[in-house]
Amino acid sequence: MVQTVIEPTSAGDVSATRDLYIKAYRFMLLARVLDDKLASLYRAGKILGGVFLGRGQEALSVSIGVGLRERDIFAPLIRDMAGRLAFNESVLDAARTFLGSSLGPMRGRDGNIHRGRPKEGQLAMISHLGAMISVVNGGLFARRMRGIKGTVGVACCGDGSTSTGSFHEAMNQAAIEKLPLVMVVADNQYAYSTPTERQFACRSLVDRAVGYGIPGYEVDGTNLTACLNVVGEAIARARAGEGPQLVVANLLRLCGHGEHDDAQYIEPKLKASDLGRDCMKLAEAYLTQQSWADAATLSKWRAEAVQKVEEATAAAQREPGPDPFAENYWAALSTENLLEGNE
């Protein structure tokens, strides 16, 4: 009943394990390359508003994306490029939203990480991230009412969002309703500049699961194998009808809160600790050690990722921005006859 994604028990499982690991790694790589490109474009003055990277959090993020299926629901956090791409987002959607193309899913109305396609299961986050969890609950609740089975929802947040009232309300709600929610908390040691000792006083955020009456798992967020296992198992348990699951990953953000932030506040000793290891480098070492990829293969994969990213960002930069006179940008209701004049 409980399935683990990776933990080969027989020879036949090895190739499935390898294939999943490689698939996950390549989405991590694509996300890292895209994030790096967006950072460059930001520094070149080509992106207005914030740029928020997932550097250091790709192993955790991608484990969600590869664990989800079509029709599942995903409410990412701002560092989930890898998970978004592995779930169902296109590089072009991401590029268009950061670069303000009117052809992207948000059409210039909202930007950067505030993108999504709710009809395809990607929720478009508001900035108050804890508020997304109960929206995932609502989607799952509706599906149960309509007799749709076998889908799950994943909501993501950092250590900071766990302090909000909406986090608590939504976790308690999911537990009461026994919804197939997987809550993934990336404890990256800082909420913007605030360290965890000013954020919570429990031993680990995973201890909160006990209070909600749901299972909780703690995982090394720098280790792709561990993330695939733990997140995969949590998703499988939720999908099997075992109710909400909490996953808390320990890791370190390897960049500022956004690209405007030099993150001088991050303790050097944390950077030097196991938490500060780069999940990409660890994954590459593991691929090499397992003989699943050699240096030439790794650089070929990187070149392919770079090609995809360059094509998408070049295309998005050529596209028109929104024209305030071209469509009705000033209608906040879908019911036209209830709109007031915008004189």
Binding site: A131, G138, R146
Partner: peptide, 28 residues
């Protein structure tokens, strides 16, 4: 039955659930 449901004392989560259900085509 099953369509008029008690909520916990959690107005934020109540509204969030309604919004999520509305995105799925419901009329909460």
């Amino acid at each position: 039955p099953g369509r008029v449901l008690d909520a916990p004392i959690a107005e934020d989560a109540m509204a969030g659930l309604a919004i999520g259900a509305a995105l799925e085509g419901m009329r909460p």
